[in-house]
């Protein structure tokens, strides 16, 4: 029986891309790395206590004193365990991945909501992104982008972006028909309809997607560490390879703390926008 040469085709494709566009990938990778490094350096420049204070203020304003207290406790614990540099590495990775996911994912989700054909094309691609084992694209990512943060961001975005796309699409499709009719009946342009009605009404759903994106990107930290992203993932890997269970646990705990803070902060954001509108 004839065997379809899928594997060979992929190999050939990767080779071809590397030969013809290798340089372009280098440039791209270099500029992203530059961006990430700049961001990381900027964060490191802020004293640790100032950053903790900033998080406390954000937490207090969005959710109240409980989250503020919890965040303070969690971050101080991370500092106490001498995990502060790893914390910054992971934070940068998560924020960059979330930003890229939002910047790419939300517009893609909007287009998918408007065009059912695009949505049909997009669906299997999203399934691919979410379920294809990440190691499969980690190796080519390494070949294209080299070792370091850039392939880590790439792998994280591939895995973490789908919820942002899916929930943006869902959120906009779920905007009640009569609210869209309000927009049209009062003579809104399509852009006004999107900005003033569809996106704001869909915002809680979109935020749920972004929240999921952040959570999923945190679950990628260990895999990201394998290709040189550093952060808590590196600590976990080191703990495993040295059979230092305690070290692995400390780093794992730090991931959980960061996840909880980011989750509660992003959930509080929605309630926050509402009260902000009221105060205007």
């Amino acid at each position: 029986m004839y065997r379809l040469p899928i594997g060979q085709l992929v190999n050939g494709g990767v080779q071809w891309l590397l030969e013809h566009y290798g340089h372009a990938f280098d440039v791209f990778s270099g500029s992203i790395a530059h961006l990430v490094d700049g961001f990381r350096t900027g964060l490191a420049w802020i004293p640790w206590w100032a950053l903790i204070l900033l998080v406390i203020v954000l937490a207090w304003r969005s959710e109240g004193w409980r989250l503020a207290l919890g965040s303070a406790f969690g971050l101080l614990l991370i500092y106490n365990l001498s995990l502060w540099p790893a914390f910054l590495d992971t934070l940068v990775l998560v924020i960059i991945a979330a930003l890229v996911s939002i910047v790419l994912g939300v517009p893609i989700g909007i287009v998918a909501a408007y065009s059912s054909r695009f949505h049909r094309i997009m669906s299997p691609i999203l399934d691919f992104m979410q379920t294809m084992p990440s190691f499969v694209y980690l190796i080519p990512a390494l070949m294209f982008f080299g070792l370091g943060t850039v392939p880590a961001v790439f792998a994280t975005v591939v895995f973490a972006m789908p919820p942002a796309i899916r929930l943006t699409n869902l959120g906009i499709r779920q905007v009640p028909v009569d609210l869209v009719e309000v927009g049209e009946a009062f003579g809104s342009s399509p852009v006004q309809l999107l900005w003033k009605i569809q996106l704001p009404v869909a915002m809680p759903t979109i935020m749920a997607g972004i929240n999921q994106t952040m959570m999923l990107s945190l679950s990628m930290v260990v895999i990201a560490a394998m290709i040189g992203a550093g952060g808590f993932g590196a600590g976990v890997l080191a703990g495993i390879s040295q059979m230092d269970i305690g070290k692995g646990f400390e780093n794992g705990l730090a991931v959980v703390i960061l996840a909880m803070i980011l989750d509660r902060l992003s959930q509080g954001f929605i309630r926050n926008t509402r009260t902000a509108d009221k105060k205007k």
Partner: peptide, 14 residues
């Protein structure tokens, strides 16, 4: 201008 059966007020606006 139109008035709707289910009011159709924008929930995110005052």
């Amino acid at each position: 201008a139109m008035v709707f059966q289910q009011f159709a007020l924008l929930p995110h606006r005052t």
